[in-house]
Design a protein around this nucleic acid. Structure first.
Length: 775
DNA sequence: CGTAAATGTTTTTTT
DNA sequence: AACATTTACG
């Protein structure tokens, strides 16, 4: 009983536990449709216009349901209609539904569409990402694990910073083991639900031992600072559900129907979470497409979807194969591409919308020519009456957008970039948020160090370390330590004075938090009273002006929050939670007259009439790192995702050379281009330059053994480096590292060399590195 | 303690 | 090439 009402969502009209025990099957089924006349009509409307499998998925009864939804097969439609159907037939109340999406944007969209289908508010419904749902539950349950409700959520850069501090403390050479790689390793472990102790038990090598030590320390620091990283949101929630059966029972009873979108991209922690919540009633409907699994680098485990039928032998399985988005040509090309992958569930997309135009493949001289080409096409299309909003351009890495942006800006073509440098990751925005975070969570040392000397107040590195160390040694929070600077050993008098002034401002601000001041006002007070805004204004640069504008935007966000959220006790906590999990991807505008630019990853779930995929070159796409790490199939799925976004026109370009890392690099056309049947392709542009000399032989580059691709890449790289060319297997001598052997040759004149001395493998620029051939 | 220069790192993709 | 972090010096 205790705390039962706590699980009410912040904006729910009534506590959830009141809703849970009224499980109803709905008024007598008559062939799956309830008898009340108006509801009857609404149900009929819901099923209107759905094809056979879609309808089957919508009306499927209780129990596990697997919907294998190919690209463009209307899965969002099925999900939203199923939710509305469950409510209309009274099999579920709004408050009994938990619907998980991949992004906040997708969640908002789904809530919207369900709202329109239902014709009433969806506030009681939990439609959100895994992370948001967990954060919301943890706001209530975290005290069970020793956290307060004000715990801070660290993003990737925060946790990297903390990992770095841990590594420093352990005297680890940051060159040998970078904070980034260690953080990634820890994240990986958490996604697999491996605690620091679990990890320590399975270490093999030196690197893993270091990670194990860092992991242990990192966890201790997180708890001490009352903070969780992204992965913890899932991990800790699983902990709660496993440790407290009564809590698990409560959520399992509350969420009587669980629906999950993009199931192919769930990781083990998410899988476990679903088991814990839906394991009893098994009313778990998942939608996904194994061919679109593109997040294994973030711990996504494709087995979750491949094994669903093993996990739930009685699962209803529905396949959606009719595509409503693309032309048959685009689908055939995509099908042919993905057929090169081994593990997959068989599925063949088809459409009745006609053949359409061939896929255009275009070779350009370099990235600038590529950008000019896309720009020219955009202008041509606009002349033909196409709206800019119908056009999208995808690329593999964010850095690739720059050249394209230059071209568009110069030609004054409006565009929007999705993702990239994120609003909430900008230094000034993070600073502002860190101030607020520190006000909410006085133990948050990461926020404290970020903010204490920004703007400059004469609290330098040494003073900060002393305060931090003092807090750690005496077991008090950083806030308490800083609030009594005289008590910190070894602090200079100047530093004491600065800290005293700083903390008096902070104490002031904190009182206003207690007074429940609106977020907009609080944020403005923070920015002006800490002198942050003054410092920026004093700079008098265009850059600083931009920052001020960004902060203005943040204040606007806060005011919006004030207007939308009902006044409540822990306003600041809710605001911080929301912003911590917010990403720019969520700010896409559909209706605006702009070309849309984004990474292929961001393109998932979207569709555009006209699509350009640029940078289709070996090393760029597939990315060289994925070639090294043997994750080519995932790259191919990414290519598949990109191609299947296109409705009627798909163009893929590759450049003969481009600037990578500052220097010129030569690239061969992506192998993916060769995997599209030639008769579906219209190759344009210079046909020379294909590594196999088959320029005139359109599309004849067939996938062969890896070795042949590797040597072709080696040839291209060799051409780029003139005299100083290295081949696989060459013995070399390095001025500093000694003897080694060439284990790889990459575009851009990069050679990979394994050194005999310590067995390390390093990537070097052949042209500049002090290496010479031996023997 | 702060600034400026030098040095190193980064570029995969993101909740 | 762009950015972050470290180092040298005032």
């Amino acid at each position: 009983m205790r705390g039962a009402s706590n699980i009410a969502p912040h904006n729910a009209p009534e506590p959830l536990h009141l809703l849970t025990r009224r499980g109803r099957r709905g008024p007598a089924y008559h062939g799956g449709v309830p008898s009340e006349a108006p509801a009857d009509q609404r149900v009929a409307d819901l099923l209107e216009g759905l094809n056979e499998p879609q309808r089957a998925a919508v009306v499927a009864g209780d129990g596990p349901l697997l919907i294998l939804a190919g690209a463009g097969s209307g899965k969002t439609r099925v999900l939203t209609h199923r939710i509305a159907y469950l409510v209309h037939t009274q099999r579920a109340r709004a408050g009994e539904l938990l619907a998980i999406t991949f992004t906040n944007k997708a969640a908002a969209e789904m809530r919207d569409r369900v709202g329109m289908l239902l014709g009433h508010s969806t506030r009681a419904m939990w439609v959100m990402t895994f992370h948001s749902a967990c954060a919301r539950m943890l706001r209530v349950e975290a005290p069970r694990l020793g956290y307060t409700r004000q715990f801070t959520i660290y993003d990737a850069s925060d946790s990297r910073r903390l990992v770095k501090r841990c590594l420093d403390q352990l005297d680890v050479d940051p060159k040998r083991f970078t904070p980034g790689s260690v953080a990634h390793q820890i994240s990986d472990a958490k996604n697999k639900l491996r605690s620091a102790d679990d990890y320590a038990r399975m270490v093999g090598g030196h690197f893993e031992q270091t990670v194990a030590d860092a992991y242990k320390l990192y966890e201790r620091e997180l708890v001490r600072m009352n903070a969780m990283d992204f992965d913890d949101l899932l991990f800790r929630m699983v902990n709660v559900l496993e440790l407290f059966p009564e809590v698990r029972a409560r959520y399992a009873a509350t969420f009587r129907h669980v629906l999950v979108d993009e199931y192919q991209d769930t990781n083990h922690a998410q899988y476990r979470l679903l088991q814990l919540i839906a394991g009893d009633h098994k009313n778990l409907a998942v939608v996904g497409d194994d061919a679109q699994s593109i997040y294994s680098f973030r711990g996504a485990d494709i087995r979750n979807i491949l094994d669903f039928q093993d996990d739930f032998p009685d699962a209803t399985v529905v396949k959606l194969e009719q595509n409503y988005r693309s032309t048959q040509t685009i689908l055939s090309a995509s099908n042919a591409l993905i057929a090169h992958n081994r593990a997959q569930m068989h599925k063949t997309l088809w459409t009745d919308q006609g053949e359409g135009d061939p896929v255009v493949v275009r070779e350009l001289e370099d990235e600038h020519a590529e950008a000019r080409y896309v720009l020219g096409e955009v202008q041509r299309l606009v002349d033909e009456g196409v709206s800019l909003a119908e056009i999208a351009c995808f690329y593999r890495t964010n850095a690739q957008s720059r050249v394209l942006e230059d071209a568009l800006v110069r030609a004054e073509v409006p565009y929007q970039v999705i993702g990239g440098t994120k609003f909430y990751e900008r230094a000034e925005v993070k600073d502002a948020i860190s101030y607020l975070t520190l006000l909410a969570n006085p133990a948050d040392a990461i926020s404290f160090t970020r903010v204490a000397n920004s703007p400059k107040r004469g609290i330098g590195q040494t003073s900060l370390s002393r305060v931090l160390a003092h807090a750690e040694n005496t077991g008090i929070t950083v806030w308490e330590a800083a609030d009594d600077p005289a008590g910190v050993p070894g602090l200079a008098t100047a530093a004491i004075r600065s800290l005293t002034r700083f903390m008096s401002t902070m104490n002031d601000l904190r009182e206003r938090v207690a007074d429940d001041v609106p977020m907009g006002d609080l944020l403005e007070a923070v920015l002006s009273e800490t002198g942050y805004l003054d410092a920026l204004e004093a700079e008098r640069t265009i850059e600083a002006q931009g920052r001020i504008e960004n902060l203005g935007e943040l204040v606007a966000v806060a005011r919006e929050f004030d207007a939308a959220a009902p006044p409540e006790q822990d306003r600041l906590d809710v605001f911080l939670q929301q912003t911590a999990l917010q990403s720019d991807t969520d700010d896409r505008k559909d209706d605006a007259g702009m070309v849309t630019l984004m990474t292929l990853h961001n393109a998932k779930g979207l569709e555009y009439p006209i699509v350009y995929m640029i940078g289709c070159e070996e090393g760029v796409f597939p990315h060289s790192r994925s070639i090294d790490e043997g994750t080519l199939e995932e790259e191919r799925r990414l290519c598949y995702v990109g191609m299947t976004r296109a409705m009627r026109s798909l163009t893929m370009t590759h450049a003969r050379q481009r600037n990578v890392f500052g220097s010129r690099a030569y690239g061969l056309p992506s192998r993916f281009l060769a995997e599209i049947p030639p008769d579906l392709v219209d190759r344009q542009g210079a046909l020379t330059g294909y590594a196999n000399g088959a320029g005139a032989d359109r599309g004849s580059i067939r996938p062969r053994a890896m070795a042949s691709w590797a040597s072709m890449r080696a040839d291209a790289a060799a051409a780029a480096t003139d005299e100083k060319s290295f081949r696989l297997g060459d013995d070399v001598l390095h001025a500093a590292f000694g003897e080694g052997v060439v284990t790889g040759v990459e575009p851009g004149g990069v050679v990979v060399i394994r050194f005999a001395r310590d067995g390390s493998e390093r990537k070097l620029m052949a042209e500049y590195a002090p290496i010479s051939k031996r023997g």
